[in-house]
Design a protein around this nucleic acid. Structure first.
Lengths: 244, 244
DNA sequence: GATGTCATGTGGACTATACCACAACGGGGG
DNA sequence: CCCCCGTTGTGGTATAGTCCACATGACATC
């Protein structure tokens, strides 16, 4: 057990936090294991409980540990990192709100649909090739959302990066493929952005953002797009009017 | 200046945090303004410095305030709001989905409305008394959301904790006050939950959650409720169907 | 006028202590 | 055998005080 240096300029709680973090990293403590109680820690390291608690709190805040009142503090399971870097969008109505908006295509590829996407888009194995489009959207010159969309190749023959450049995907569906969207279903959930997403959106990694997952339908019940979109939440709020 | 209720189950630091948040929201404090020093706050509210510091820390963590050693604590620049309204049929009714739901009232108080709440609810100074209701909602036995609601006393004479116990606020509005809600406006933003919120919702502090701010209207354009609601995002996703 | 010093006020860190709510456990009584 | 009820240990909150590092402005000195 490492000791604390009470003369150091590094705060005690921070030193203690590093020690605990190391123990978790080194598997001295496995997920689900309890760490020593705060009172134990005080005694072992010769510090006050507030200081011990502060170190533990920091790790709890980072998701390394979790507390249960009356039971103890435990090592959390490693978070399934959301590196899927899947993102999507629905911001056609940004312009309708009178804001300047434009889109940069980061990647445009053709690939075999994963099982999830095949199921969501209801694709048979014969038509399981999809276009995967990763776009970064700007509003008023600021990065706004990172959008990852999949559309079945069979429904959009000849779709290419050049064709999409500078245009809205939905507009293109309408004009070039005579496809009118009828509705969409989407879910919203709050997540912490990954390093990549943070870099693209000009945020600090770990900033809370909104993840929209969407399936868009054309004609009755024909899924034509699946997308996952990360929205900056700190700067933009979504206003929704609804009937009760 | 609102007071703290030392008898409440709501922690003092959390009450103080809400007060400070309100002051920022109400523009009693503009971006760049310094807030009272921690020692000032202690004295004014009759609490210890650790408690004051904890409240300030929470707001610093949320980006509402920032500290500068030796200088003070200041109000951060607000997040620019971008509203994109989409037509949605948003179902507020969990029970309609066939799930068991119940509510625990954590606090029921009567207080003078802050300026923001007065403006939002369109209250004249003569009728600026509001009921403040803090409720924890459970779905299928699990904590689901933490809702802080304000309703004008003048519109709900005789409303009490007992009256609300075990009932839906909206149901009560309808049956006991003959008030029919027409619509509501709300914004969604992703935030990191505080220690208190985490405790109530059985989450780890810092877990990303959804913050819904809502204004509900009865009859054409009469605001009858303002609420801030924290939803667990990890387990429950909001599904929204919308036309394009 | 420029410069250095010092008092003051700020947040940062820490101690020592207290009481509470909750979970787990175990013993005693039905 | 099961259930109730203390006991014990845990984290949650709060108090009252201490010392430190840093920023600022007033003031004295050069």
């Amino acid at each position: 057990m490492r000791k604390l240096d009470k003369e150091s300029v590094v705060p005690l709680y921070y030193q203690l936090k590093e020690i605990l973090q190391t123990m978790v990293d080194d598997d001295d403590l496995a997920p689900g294991d309890s760490i020593p109680s705060e009172r134990d820690i005080c005694e072992r390291f010769g510090i006050s409980r507030m200081t011990a608690s502060k170190a533990v709190s920091a790790l709890v805040h980072e998701g390394v540990l979790y507390r249960e009142r009356g039971r103890g503090t435990f090592v959390a399971s490693p978070k399934p990192t959301c590196t899927s870097s899947c993102l999507t969008g629905f911001s056609d109505n940004i312009r309708a709100a009178g804001l300047e908006a434009w889109t940069r295509i980061l990647a445009f590829g053709e690939e075999e649909a994963s099982r999830t996407i095949r199921e969501v888009l209801d694709l048979s194995p014969q038509e399981a090739t999809v276009f995967n489009i990763l776009r970064l959207r700007y509003v008023e010159g600021e990065p706004f959302s990172l959008e990852n969309a999949w559309v079945p190749r069979c429904r959009f023959p000849g779709l290419s990066r050049d064709l999409l450049e500078g245009r809205s995907l939905y507009d293109l569906m309408r004009t070039d493929f005579s496809m009118r969207l009828s509705h969409a279903r989407q879910t919203i959930e709050p997540v912490l952005c990954s390093d990549f997403e943070a870099g693209q959106l000009d945020l600090d990694p770990g900033t809370p953002v909104l993840l929209f997952r969407r399936v868009a339908y054309a004609e009755p019940q024909v899924a034509v797009e699946y997308s996952k979109c990360i929205y900056r939440g700190k700067r933009f709020k979504y206003e929704i009017a609804f009937g009760i």
